[in-house]
Design a binder for these strands. Structure first.
Lengths: 237, 237
DNA sequence: ATGTAACTGTGATGCGGTTCATAATTCCTT
DNA sequence: AAGGAATTATGAACCGCATCACAGTTACAT
């Protein structure tokens, strides 16, 4: 499963510690100590990083690239739960409790991750209680997002779901652009569909609609230029 | 908003500390110390305990009764996110971060709650770091449940949603019974509908179907006798 | 640059859940 | 125990998303 162990002398394993909010309360010396505990690994697009049910022995921090966390139902449908990018982490639940992973994680592109072993992480948390608080903060943010997702899935129209995910991507991956916000989509149409519980076709149709309304412009399959953010927000309800 | 301040000399404010897992690592003396910080309040069925957007100054622990946490969309639809019962707590996110409540909380029946003020809670967490870990554990359980809800809402059939919620209630509120599991429903059909993003009518119909199939028996509006748990589980996919 | 595989767009069709309407039951109050 | 309000059940019609089918487009590797 592990492919390339990055020897990475240049960054001295420090890059990921700097990018990650859970270590933000540490001093440079402490950070260096943490950096020594880290093992780097690299995955190619499509590689399965963790499988549902597999037990994990490390906290995984995304240093570069992105991954999706998802579950498969028996009839082959996929539900994407999270998209993790640079600075995000996963596997925390399997370290605190002794529990197998509750989802699959797959690289959406070439991805460089940093691993901290369970025993090292537990020592870290004891030595630096602020880390636990930061982890908690991150968990709270995930709760917020999932609550919002449940609300949208439960009460929202299909327009609202598509608008909501586009706004999320605009905030997370959007770059300023003279005509609006340029979004580099992390997922294909089908991926988006699996993220919000719809079919590929419906997502296609709704995005075409939004384009016809002048709210956005599709640039190939992987980019969207958001022209009218406010209009999307109005779609939320 | 606060109605009755319970003077409650009998329990000496200890009941709720004993019931709550986040204090399970404390010694009896430490528990007594915590108990002194607690203020008791009581709400009647239908009382709004917290409003969305309102800022909270206390952690709220349910001592007796149950409440629902929910959001309202602009067009008047309601999405129930959590049902909290004896031993559960809410408001933790507004204490750790400085954030207004993200949902409404309403009493589903006469409910007795214990309050710990923000400043007291923060001191507690510092003195007893295990409390933070316990809170984290609870947050993880909520994440698990929400992830499961998103999966069911995104990929599951309506049968699966109804089956899923009935299984949840069976585990949480079910009592052994010679013919199966007797469930005291915390929500009306409409409430269940708002919990799983369906309409009252659809929930009615599906539950009638389950009754016709001999999987359960409805006893009035508030009780369900689950006869064939395995059949419900098979419905999940 | 080109060819090919993967992805996307769109029409036609059908099913299933919502909506609306109304009847029946339950449950709560007195 | 009875009456009335609230909740639930159920039928009919409609609408929207899934599904199926296939054409068109994009992207990527060589």
């Amino acid at each position: 499963m592990y492919k390339n162990i990055c020897s990475c002398d240049i960054c001295n394993h420090k890059l990921c510690t700097k990018k990650v909010s859970i270590f933000s309360s540490l001093s440079p010396e402490q950070l260096a100590k943490v950096a020594n505990l880290i093992i780097h690994k690299e995955y190619q697009k499509g590689d399965l990083i963790v499988m549902e049910g597999e037990s994990m022995d490390s906290l995984v921090i995304i240093n570069e690239g992105q991954v999706k966390a998802f579950r498969n139902t028996q009839d082959g449908r996929e539900q994407i739960l999270y998209i993790f990018s640079e600075g995000d982490f996963f596997g925390e639940r399997n370290l605190l409790r002794d529990q197998a992973s509750t989802y699959n994680v797959k690289a959406l592109e070439k991805t460089h991750v940093c691993l901290i072993h369970k025993r090292d992480f537990q020592v870290l948390v004891k030595d630096f209680p602020d880390i636990a608080l930061k982890v908690m903060e991150e968990l709270c943010q995930r709760l917020d997002r999932l609550e919002h997702t449940v609300e949208t899935m439960g009460t929202g129209t299909v327009e609202a779901r598509v608008s909501s995910v586009l706004l999320e991507f605009a905030d997370k991956y959007g770059k300023a652009h003279p005509k609006g916000i340029m979004i580099e989509l992390p997922l294909s149409r089908e991926g988006i569909a699996h993220y919000i519980g719809l079919t590929r076709e419906t997502v296609s149709r709704k995005m075409s609609m939004l384009q016809d309304e002048g709210i956005l412009e599709m640039l190939g399959n992987k980019k969207v230029l958001l022209l009218d953010r406010a209009a999307l927000e109005r779609n939320l309800e």
